[in-house]
Structures are given as C-alpha cells and as structure tokens.
Design a protein around this nucleic acid. Structure first.
Lengths: 122, 122
DNA sequence: GACTAATACATAAATCTTTTATGTATATTT
DNA sequence: AAATATACATAAAAGATTTATGTATTAGTC
C-alpha cells in the first residue's frame, strides 16, 4: 500500500474549511494554533495547516457570522477562541455532509471496487 | 441524508488531475469532450468539468510528458486523443494512491465513526 | 545566561487553479 | 431555420493557498 508522510499541496486545496468547521463542531471552542496542532495530531503530520491560510479564513468566517470570537489572556499572551454561531452550526453540518458526499463520488471514480453500492440508494 | 445536485466550486478544487489520470488509466485513450461527458455520467451531473479548466490541464500534462496526443478526423472535425505515457502511467498510479490515502485521512477527520480502523495498519 | 524551539497571533506578495467569458466551427435534432 | 450538442481553444478575472515576513511571550536546553 502507498504510504506518504505529507500530502502534496494541490491535493489539500479546498479542504481547509470543512476541516475547521468539523473541529469547531466537535470542540465547542478552539483557538487558531490549537486547530493546527489538532489537525497535525489527527492526521499524523500528513496535513499541516499553514498560518497564512488559517488566519485569513478564520477572519472571513467571523465576518460571515459563521463563528464568533472571544479573547482570553494566558499570562501576557492573548488567545483568540473561535466558536460556531447557531447559523454556523447548520452551515457547518451542510458543508460537511456535502464534502462526505463528494468524497463518496470521488471514491466511486477513483476506486470503483471500493464503492460497489454507489448510486443504489436514492 | 444530505442530497445535492452539484458540488460547490471550492470543494472540487485540486481534484481534476486525479480524475483525468484515473479515466486515462482505465480507458487507454480519450479526447477532451469525452472526458467531460464521462465525468458527468459517472457522477450523475454532480461534477461538471469546465473546458477552461480541462484543456489547459491536458496541455500541461502533455508538456510534462504525462500524456501524448494523436489527432483523428471525424468528418470535418478533428478530435484530439490523449493517452498516458509510460511515465504518465506510474505518475498516475502514484497520484491516485495518494488521493485515496488522503480521502481516508479526511474521512477520519470528518466522520470518525466511519473510519474506526484509521491508523491501525502500519 | 544565551540560544533555540514552541506558542500565538497577523498580514502581504506571489503563485497556482479554476471560473467565467469568449471565440470558432461542424453535426444533429426539433 | 433555429437550437442544441459536439469539439477544440484561450484569456482575463477571481479565489485559495503558499511563502515570506513580522511581532511577542514562554519553555526548554547547552
């Protein structure tokens, strides 16, 4: 079986948003750095979120009302926690479901033997 | 369960290359328009490849030596068939394996219940 | 005590992919 | 005759992410 340490950049494109929303769904509130570490841990270093991608997206999600923030002081440092709003919660559920459905479709294309029942359920 | 007719654009990013390479792996040779139709058919219209994305990528794959082309006249129209080179074949296998592995990782993040054995096999 | 790595945020330029728009031309169906 | 499908192609604009850079605190190591 194919083993890789870290995925090539192109492959990860477009997956950041569902990842973040899923983690926020599960953890109530998280701060940026925590998200990067959680993803590293969950994926055994295969996916490493860059800060240049993460923070602008978090800010955008806030501007869209998907998440709200609260700052918290840890010693002299300030952490910014993100949590889903009510709207954000349903948006998150939608997007994650769409992504899972999409992956089933991709699996059907890429590995037909592993998705024998594709399309039978309507 | 969530049903959607067509995936949002962002979600599909980065998936075009593995899709094309997989189809070429399976069909020996295909022409551009044929690829768009095959993908539409396989995914029940959920993924529709735009020509503006397809043709530049095919040209790039040719420039990189992943595919070769042969033109064929159908009446007064000319079709351009693409097929994998030997190098292209192994590159395709690599990329597809990486993508499948990546999807397993994503599934593990997004839907932990459906990937209980994640990471047990080494 | 000084240095390094980790924690924690942020932004901006450059890169890359894809969409949207446009163009050309033939073949088929209504 | 007109509309739709087939078949290629390119170019400007939009969008996401990388790479690079910046600031500052905290913890661990030599």
């Amino acid at each position: 079986m194919y083993i890789c340490l870290m995925y090539s950049k192109e492959i990860i494109k477009g997956t950041l948003k569902p990842i973040i929303l899923k983690l926020l769904q599960e953890h109530n509130r998280m701060y940026g750095y925590e998200i990067t570490q959680k993803v590293k841990e969950l994926t055994k270093d295969k996916i490493q979120i860059t800060e240049g991608a993460l923070y602008p997206l978090l800010h955008k999600l806030e501007a869209e009302g998907i998440v709200t923030t609260e700052k918290e002081s840890i010693g002299k440092r300030v952490r910014k926690y993100y949590k889903l709003t009510e709207t954000g919660n349903s948006k998150a559920a939608e997007l994650i479901d769409e992504f899972i459905d999409f992956m089933a479709t991709m699996k059907h294309i890429l590995d037909p033997n592993l998705s024998p029942g594709y399309g039978t359920a309507q």
